[in-house]
Design a protein around this nucleic acid. Structure first.
Lengths: 216, 216
DNA sequence: GTCTATAGCGCGATAGAC
DNA sequence: GTCTATCGCGCTATAGAC
């Protein structure tokens, strides 16, 4: 237990406490993070946190608010609203990836939420609105004929958002690639594919091995 | 609290308890699931669970074991070991998606693990071996020249596994699409792209801070 | 093989001194 | 604004009756 240094130390405001909490939330997960652990990273005692925030859930609320604000704003950007659907889709995909990386901790709070409490249910509900907006964009591209037609647009949309959501699980800002570079790569792989343009691969499925889908 | 029916009811074995636990783990997450909630779905009291299993962590261990066994087996299948790397990659990608869907609850135990306890750290460690095997396969395809060369193979591998990992977050076995169909779609989108073959999209980055990805 | 009852512990949050 | 001390609760796990 790091005894707090009684000597000089910058005073904390609520934003500093929230920022410290986001770090721990990203690494350990919200539920598995105790107020003790947040306090420890700040060099103070748990009880002192409650001078800055009213509850642990307030930290969660602050985080998801920032994530939702940033994500919903993407759909209002000019490049997301004008032009061919396929171009708007590429833009939105790139921007969602950028925002997810730039606000990785806050985004992971939204992504990992299971809906176990009433407040968590509200998060799920709000996330569905974003999912729906994105699915509508994918649907528009499908109607336009610029997306492959051999699978449902709703499935494409889910897989794409799955890919961006998964970014928070491994991305850390100190890597060699910038967030913008990774976001570009996400959109490029999802829309254009990972194959070299010239490489033609056997498109055959794996041989059927008895589809055991458990828990029918 | 559902009072257990004292009348006739099939006796439980350890597998039935484990299967019930997996259902709840998938929906609520491992940490957020209490032994009380598992017992309730079986219609017995919490204390009775301990006649079948020694601890909550034993349930986690059983699920993780099944997930790892199924995933590692994929790399030993003949189609994963012979042929062009790009074809092996397509096969493994499809099979990983299939296995992730068929064992969604068990796979999610592995995927959501944060490494907060010594046992969880061991899970992370073992998962890294699978990630490495997959990354090696992607690297082989890159060396072969059948993957796009404008982004690092390691990044491609991470994004691909991110996409399959995300499947457990929304897939439920009662949907219209079978696990095999979804797995096919995952590999098709990741390797060939979501765009219609004819549709040429503006490849421009969002104007904001568009740095293009370089690096082999 | 299931029950009731409870030990033991860690957590979020509060009270009040300094 | 931080501290020590503690309350109250829910959790995993155990004890022992039936």
């Amino acid at each position: 237990m790091g005894r707090p240094a009684m000597s000089a130390r910058a005073p904390f405001d609520v934003d500093a406490v929230a920022a410290a909490a986001m770090d721990v939330f990203l690494r350990r997960g919200y539920a598995a993070t105790s107020m003790d652990q947040i306090a420890e990273t700040l060099g103070i005692r748990k009880a002192s946190l409650y001078h800055h925030v009213a509850s642990k859930e307030e930290l969660l609320r602050r985080g998801v608010e920032r994530a939702f604000d940033a994500l919903t704003a993407v759909f209002d950007e000019p490049s997301a609203r004008h032009g061919r659907a396929i171009d708007r889709l590429r833009y939105v995909l790139t921007r969602i990836a950028e925002v997810t990386l730039a606000r990785a901790a806050e985004a992971s709070l939204v992504i990992r939420t299971r809906g176990n409490t009433p407040f968590e249910e509200a998060i799920i509900h709000r996330r569905r609105a974003i999912d729906a907006a994105f699915a509508a964009l994918v649907g528009a591209a499908a109607d336009e004929g610029t997306l492959r037609a051999d699978m449902p647009p709703a499935l494409l949309a889910r897989m794409m958002l799955g890919t961006t959501n998964a970014l928070t699980e491994w991305y850390r800002a100190d890597g060699v690639l910038t967030a913008a570079e990774i976001a570009q790569a996400v959109a490029a792989m999802l829309l254009d594919g990972a194959r070299a343009p010239s490489a033609i691969s056997a498109a055959a499925a794996p041989p059927r091995r008895g589809r055991r889908v458990r828990r029918g």
